[in-house]
Design a protein around this nucleic acid. Structure first.
Lengths: 228, 228
DNA sequence: GTCTATAACGAGATAGAC
DNA sequence: GTCTATCTCGTTATAGAC
């Protein structure tokens, strides 16, 4: 009773992985908008209707790819955070940022899937939120460690933004001052501005030594959230 | 001899505009990856082969849309710059940033076309560079004015980035110190990180009062390039 | 129960002959 | 410019193998 069920479950996992792998290849060649179940099935030597045993619709397959991409990126960020657990906060921050950039350069199409243009006709379900939050949580953690340890630099917060900051603290950044939470969200978005510009070609003829430039820029971001 | 030729030229301009308008509608509904000359022709009641009189290929139509989008955004930025010609540099900076955000919110699909994921199989020609540079040039101009007027704050520049900074100054930011040029490019990318995150939904459940948040964040960017 | 294959639908794109 | 024959797509219903 144990082996057949185990074998079935294993086979199911393997086929599911093969489908996603083929879909990722398609993503690279045709883009998310043109991801087609039939093409995926063809590549696997299956018939299209068989895929519906594994993914109830094309959109669910897309969702799985999106969650995988967020998780893969989040894992890279968490690894970088853990690798530098003894280092200074600024260095841990830049290490995480460099991990994000490294992952993006290594997986440009999956990066485009999660941080690029929305796929027309597709709307990401709530299920993606948890995975999407991972990088942000890593950055929050580093700043919280610094806040509880060496301390943070003072940051300004206009009165009109205080309610927003309080809300952010309550929602996802407990123990942090509201002005830091606001600065963190801004730095988080700005980090992906840097990565996206490099990846999508806006830095062509503008930035040459991108690695050095990036390190310097994200050091500035670290300062903008109070790390020193 | 004058009227018929003038009428022909006028008709050509009008049809060209109608084609681009229909193509922009398609962009909104299906995305750039699925932009098809046939569908555009259908919408206009023309036959697809007739479109080739106006655009020699789908890619050329895409290029025209891209240039139009960059120009429309650039014009919005330039208008904001000119409207606040007497104001303090920081205020001119934020006004331009807000114009960029406003344009993006008003033209989300054109924004996705120029700053979102690259279109698979399409590679933008050199012709787009001039239009793509307009927003950056506006930002450079504001910082240069401040540099020649009230002056800029001191910025750090690691030795390893100095060559890059010198190159940037020579290429597109004459009269500016290299550390300012480097900071400007970073701020430019980060600005679009903020805009893109809001537009593409990353701020859902994260930032509530986006207008206030944005103003505060780009004020920080202004400081990061030395404005005060 | 779990899976795959066949066949079909309605809609849309595409290529070529005319 | 028009028509037609032949592709693609996502999705479903159904039947049969394991």
């Amino acid at each position: 009773m144990s082996t057949p069920q185990g074998a079935r479950a294993r086979a199911r996992i393997e086929v599911t992985a093969a489908i996603k792998e083929a879909a990722r290849r398609q993503l690279a060649e045709e883009g998310a908008a043109k991801l087609s179940l039939r093409a995926v099935a063809r590549e696997l030597g299956m018939v299209s209707s068989a895929l519906y045993r594994y993914f109830p619709s094309r959109d669910e397959l897309l969702t799985a790819l999106i969650i995988d991409a967020y998780d893969s990126l989040g894992e890279a960020a968490e690894k970088a955070r853990d690798a530098g657990s003894g280092a200074a906060p600024v260095d841990r921050w830049t290490a995480v940022c460099e991990a994000v950039r490294g992952w993006a350069l290594a997986h440009p199409h999956e990066y485009a899937l999660i941080y690029g243009s929305p796929v027309p006709g597709y709307s990401a379900p709530e299920t993606t939120i948890r995975a999407a939050a991972r990088v942000g949580l890593v950055l929050i953690g580093i700043v919280r460690d610094a806040h509880e340890g060496p301390g943070l630099a003072d940051l300004p917060l206009p009165a009109e933004l205080r309610p927003e900051g309080e809300r952010m603290v309550a929602a996802f950044a407990p123990d942090l001052p509201p002005e830091v939470a606001v600065a963190l969200v801004a730095a988080w978005a700005q980090l992906f501005g840097l990565v996206g510009f490099e990846l999508f070609g806006q830095f062509n003829n503008v930035v040459d030594d991108r690695e050095t430039f990036f390190r310097h820029a994200v050091t500035g971001l670290a300062h903008s959230v109070g790390l020193r």
